[in-house]
């Protein structure tokens, strides 16, 4: 810049920046040009800078066509995701085992505090109990997961404005990712999709056994009964699911048609 003193340089610098910012009006811009042209050395520098900045725009003129590669990659990933969805069952089974172990572990605590829970007889090994819960809870979780995913898919077909669940607009999405998390005696499935919600905010469900009963008689007829709160996003979903027994293997999941986050789980096993 022209070495003629501090204030002069400062003013010219400011003038130049304003000019390049494009914030000067026509009249002020003209005055700035005259001012900056007054010093040939100064003007020469500005020409260089302006030419450099102008040349930046040229780089947008050419780019390879990425579209074939991008579309191919999307196709590959979607195929992978479709296969991943088929693997969800495996994940859920693992989750169910974790949940069953947690649940059975909680049994020890519950039975000390509740007269309503009967201790298993000595003829029932713990592994059998765990296996029973693995089946029951696993089945329950699988059914619920399928339903939840189905609802997510269905939501995709509903206009966004109509997707109101739990007073929230839920963005339906796919694919569905499930992360089983053991939280104390709860099995929690953090469900996530590419969008922020699945069905309800937070996209998680938790199976919270609030009562658990295992009855084993000496004849070998074993029954387990559990009442489970299905909790989603911190708010309880309405139905209290009761499922039971590894002698009653049918566990059904159904979601009611009204959009109220209302799910019924399980075949009523006669639990009061």
């Amino acid at each position: 810049m022209n070495p003629d003193g501090g204030q002069g340089n400062f003013d010219r610098e400011r003038l130049l920046q304003d000019l390049l910012d494009g914030t000067l009006s026509g009249e002020r811009r003209e005055a700035a040009m005259i001012e900056l042209r007054a010093d040939p050395e100064n003007a020469q520098e500005l020409v260089k800078l302006r030419a450099a900045l102008e040349s930046m725009r040229d780089d947008g003129e050419y780019a390879p066509d990425f579209s074939p590669a991008i579309l191919a990659e999307i196709g590959r990933r979607q195929g992978f995701l479709a296969r991943s969805m088929r693997g969800v069952g495996t994940v859920v089974r693992v989750a169910a085992v974790v949940g069953a172990i947690a649940t059975v572990g909680a049994l020890a605590m519950i039975r000390e505090e509740s007269e309503g829970v009967l201790a298993p007889a000595e003829s029932a090994p713990m592994t059998q109990v765990a296996n029973a819960f693995e089946r029951e809870l696993g089945s329950c979780v699988r059914s619920f997961t399928t339903e939840a995913h189905q609802i997510g898919v269905e939501l995709g077909e509903i206009p966004e404005s109509a997707r109101c669940f739990g007073n929230r607009i839920a963005r339906a999405s796919k694919p569905l990712a499930i992360e089983p998390v053991q939280e104390g005696r709860f099995l929690r499935l953090n469900m996530s999709t590419e969008s922020e919600d699945l069905v309800v905010r937070g996209g998680h469900i938790a199976f919270e056994p609030f009562d658990l009963r295992i009855e084993l008689d000496r004849s070998g007829s074993h029954q387990s009964r559990a009442a489970v709160w299905v909790v989603g996003s911190g708010s309880r979903w309405t139905p209290r699911a009761t499922y039971a027994s590894y002698t009653w293997p049918v566990v059904q999941a159904e979601h009611r048609t009204e959009r109220s986050s209302s799910f019924g789980l399980g075949k009523d096993a006669g639990y009061p």
Binding site: E13, Q17, V47, K48, L49, R50
Partner: peptide, 29 residues
């Protein structure tokens, strides 16, 4: 804006040091 101005100033100093863009006409801009 501060980053923009500092960046342009640094560019100008560098280009001045390199003695490039010397032949452009003032009318370019």
């Amino acid at each position: 804006k501060s980053h923009l101005h500092r960046g342009r100033r640094r560019m100008r100093e560098y280009l001045n040091e390199q003695k490039m863009f010397a032949e452009h006409e003032w009318e370019v801009w």
